[in-house]
């Protein structure tokens, strides 16, 4: 099962002087149970693309299948399929709106018809997952929280919908290093423990290198690459044409190789890189 996009094109403001082709004949598959990263520079079409995943935008051309169901149809099956996909937008804390945190997180589950008891249970679970203590925070205003807490409260609102596919648009932007790592680890846990499929939109390639099973690169509304990370990161030219950068670790490894260190140069995460370097130095008798 998967989210499958078939020949999707999207034009903003068609038939006006501002007409702009934002997505150009895109066909991709987001496989179930994996972490898929979508990377591209600002304006490459990433945000437009993900809004198609649950029908927020309707494609000008093409079809979207969620677990085999065409979500563009007007029937209950299509509606159920659209609800399998939860999207956390950039800076989701700006979308908090309710008087209390628990009301804010309840909004989604109530809206899809969960009972009060079921909603409460989901709110508690979601808050526990993002480390917001229910007893302490449930009845506070979301606007009294710190920036990082607000972000987590907003994410809990989507988690309470228990989406099968969770789409995250730059989830760690503006957070400090510890906050970035803690949040990404939460998503990794969600993926491992509940099998949630994750779609990570990011231009932080080191983040992508650490977490993604599969990478899709967008440039000017087109898919320029769809491959596992090691394959994507070996294409330095294509990455740079897409306005992106190699992960810092990969850049360091390339530099070492160019300066004569005999490494295989497959590593793009810190752990593997350290292993490769130590091995190479051992072979040279330097370590």
């Amino acid at each position: 099962m998967s989210i499958e996009l078939k020949n999707i094109s999207y034009t903003y403001m068609p038939k006006t002087p501002f007409e702009h082709l934002a997505l150009d004949d895109i066909s991709i598959t987001v496989p179930e149970g994996k972490i898929t990263a979508i990377a591209g520079h600002t304006g490459s079409g990433k945000s437009t693309l993900i809004q198609h995943f649950n029908g927020l935008l309707k494609p000008s051309k093409g079809t979207i299948l969620v677990d085999g169901v065409d979500i563009g149809k007007k029937n209950t099956e299509a509606k159920a399929a659209r609800r399998k996909v939860g999207i956390v937008f950039q800076y989701p804390e700006y979308q908090l709106f309710e008087e209390t945190i628990s009301k804010d997180i309840s909004f989604g589950p109530m809206n899809i018809g969960c009972s009060e008891a079921e909603t409460l249970e989901r709110v508690k679970q979601a808050m526990a997952f993002v480390n917001l203590d229910y007893d302490k925070y449930a009845h506070r205003s979301p606007f009294q929280l710190s920036g990082g807490q607000k972000r987590r409260a907003a994410i809990a609102g989507i988690l309470a919908l228990q989406p099968k596919y969770l789409v995250l648009d730059e989830p760690t932007a503006g957070l400090d290093p510890k906050g970035r790592e803690a949040l990404m680890e939460k998503f990794r846990r969600l993926h491992r423990e509940r099998g949630t499929t994750i779609v990570l939109i990011s231009h932080n390639m080191d983040n992508i290198a650490s977490y993604a099973d599969n990478v899709i690169i967008l440039n000017k509304g087109k898919v320029t690459m769809e491959a596992p990370p090691e394959e994507v990161f070996s294409q330095k030219e294509l990455i740079s044409q897409a306005g992106l950068e190699l992960p810092e670790v990969k850049t360091i490894m390339n530099e070492l190789a160019q300066n004569g260190l005999e490494i295989q140069n497959n590593a793009y995460t810190m752990d593997k890189a350290v292993e490769e370097i130590i091995e190479a130095l051992r072979r040279k008798g330097k370590c």
């Binding site: 290093p177 810092e248 670790v249 360091i252 810190m270």
Partner: peptide
């Protein structure tokens, strides 16, 4: 709750090995 540049982190890990 902070970090160091990637190259510094890598040097540190290598030293530990």
């Amino acid at each position: 709750g902070l970090a160091v540049p990637m190259a510094a982190e890598m040097a540190y890990r290598l030293q530990q090995k």
